[in-house]
Simulated assay, not measured.
Amino acid sequence: MLLLITACGSGTAATGAARLTSCGLPLDIPAPPRRAVAMEQNAAEIMLSLGLAGRMAGSAYRTDPVLPELAPDYAKVPVLSAQYPGREALLAAKPDFVYSMRASAFAPEAAGSRQDLAKLGVPAYLSANDCEDHALIPARAEFEAIFKEIDDIATVFGVRERGQAVVADLRRRLRAAERPEHLDADVMWYYSGTRTPAIAGGTGLPGTITRLLGARNAFADVDKQWAEGNWEEIAARDPDVIVLADLTRGGDGDSAEAKKRFLRSDPVAARLTAVRNDRFIVVPGSSVDPSIRAVTAVEQVGRGLTRLFGRKENA
């Protein structure tokens, strides 16, 4: 997404006006927002990491405990809804900017389309990883896109130096993440569900993390971020390691412990190499999509693979 600062002579810095294109939709932002709404947790955590709690009129759809370092600021922001607020609840907060990393936030039953919000004078930014038009989504989720998004949001709010500092720290951590030595392993990422499990395909963040750590995604050939799996096919591929997304929403197979119980009790899943050898790595559910937590997922999976297969020293 290209961010262009609009200028009138030398007045750009003073006005803070911005024009950008988000998932194909042009957005005009006349001044740094003062009453922004984050429509889900990952968007909220990026804003809070940029020190923007005082400019947030609301947040919504918390899926995991908030990062400890952000929890005090998160507590200062009104919660508009346990999930996505509807159009009426959103507009009641009088937002001047709306931000989500998920297109579902702008469904008709949620906030409504970004085009309609723009007509009301409310620019709405959507992560490139989940554009409404799937043709606009990059072929793979990459860390550079996350860093660019953080820079976009920081620039919109006039805090670009903070954004650069956040990105620099994330880059440092990414370089320092542990990597196993001479790794020869197939990894399956298991998000949710039991009878029909949601498994990471080859185009999403889990695939990027797996490649970065020198492993193989057991479902790299599936041209989707997430796909419905079946246990017979999973058994045929027989992954060496299973990464379990730990979700707190309480649905079937959501928590990591619920997944483990199912895997150990199901007659097909129990025969998997990863299950028989107790090769599980647990990550928070919110870290498996592009967000401020993505580097944490690299660190956690890198440590887990190192525990299972040995260590590789980083340059």
Rank of each mutant, 00 (worst) to 15 (best):
V187H: 09
V159Y: 00
A227G: 05
W231T: 06
F219C: 04
S192N: 02
Q225V: 14
L213G: 11
A236P: 01
A176G: 13
Y190G: 10
G204P: 03
N230K: 07
E181P: 04
K224R: 15
E233F: 00
R173L: 07
I234A: 13
P180N: 08
L183R: 09
D186P: 02
G204S: 03
N230V: 04
V222G: 08
G202M: 03
E228P: 05
A168R: 11
R237K: 15
T203I: 09
A200G: 13
E178I: 01
V166N: 09
D186S: 14
A165L: 04
Q164I: 03
V166R: 10
D169L: 09
N230T: 03
W231K: 11
A200D: 04
R171D: 04
R237T: 13
Q225H: 15
A177H: 08
R216C: 11
R172V: 06
T208Y: 11
W226Q: 07
T196K: 07
R173V: 05
A227Q: 04
D186N: 14
T203R: 15
R162M: 01
A177T: 11
V167A: 13
G158N: 04
Q225G: 15
T194L: 09
Q225Y: 13
R162D: 07
G214M: 05
A227P: 01
I199R: 12
A198M: 03
A220T: 02
L174R: 13
A236C: 04
R172T: 14
V187R: 12
L212H: 13
T203N: 15
G214C: 06
R179C: 00
R237C: 13
E233D: 14
G201K: 06
A176M: 10
Y191D: 12
R160Q: 14
R171F: 02
A185E: 04
E178P: 15
A176Y: 05
R175H: 08
A220H: 05
A177R: 09
G202Q: 02
N217D: 09
D221K: 12
A177V: 12
E228Q: 12
V166H: 08
L205H: 01
L205C: 04
T208H: 11
P180Y: 01
A215N: 06
V159C: 06
P180Q: 06
E161R: 15
W189T: 12
A200Q: 08
V159S: 05
R195H: 01
D169M: 10
T194G: 05
S192M: 04
T196Y: 01
D184P: 07
T203D: 13
D184G: 12
G202C: 04
L213C: 10
A165R: 12
A168N: 04
A168T: 07
R216N: 15
G229K: 07
R179L: 00
N230Y: 03
R173S: 08
T208N: 09
F219Y: 10
Y190M: 11
